[in-house]
Amino acid sequence: MFRSSIAKTVRAAAPRASRVTARPVLARGYHEKVISHYENPRNVGSLPKNDTDVGTGLVGAPACGDVMKLQIRVDENGVISDVKFKTFGCGSAIASSSYMTERVKGLSLDEAEKIKNTEIAKELALPPVKLHCSMLAEDAIRSAIRDYRTKRQSAGSPKAKGFIDVSQSVATGETVATAHPPGSS
């Protein structure tokens, strides 16, 4: 009776021990921030892509077969008021996009555009082989911003006619001024 209960205890303890050891192995492979974003991703979901104040970025990495969708909603002050993402890919890709959504919320488009993949990689302590995941996230936000701007341009200004749109390229420093006289669209 006594002996058998010991045996039972030992048997019961064995799987628990293996479960305990399994966890640090995982933690050693990925930084805890990656795991946190992977297990509890922030801002997962979709925004209505046809809304004029929503920009959608859709990007993919053919080498690993990842797809990433990042959407922003921009308020009248040009500030990102809402952001959602959906990523089908590895843990690092999910973590990178999840982190990106947290990072850009409340930023202006110009600020959001300046976020570099190196910042994400550093924050999530991504190993060199996973750097491309952070590049994907950078590409996703830029493509969402581009989509939003294209939409606004083609829709014209919904607020008022009779203004001049001046934009400066971050890459080249080139300034473009577009006139929107009253009565045009």
């Binding site: 990495a61 797809v67 969708k69 089908f88």
Partner: peptide
């Protein structure tokens, strides 16, 4: 050889997959 830094530009495929 597909580099891991390559990005897919085929929008149609991306939309379909997503």
């Amino acid at each position: 050889e597909i580099s891991e830094y390559d990005q897919l530009d085929d929008m149609e495929l991306l939309v379909e997959v997503m």
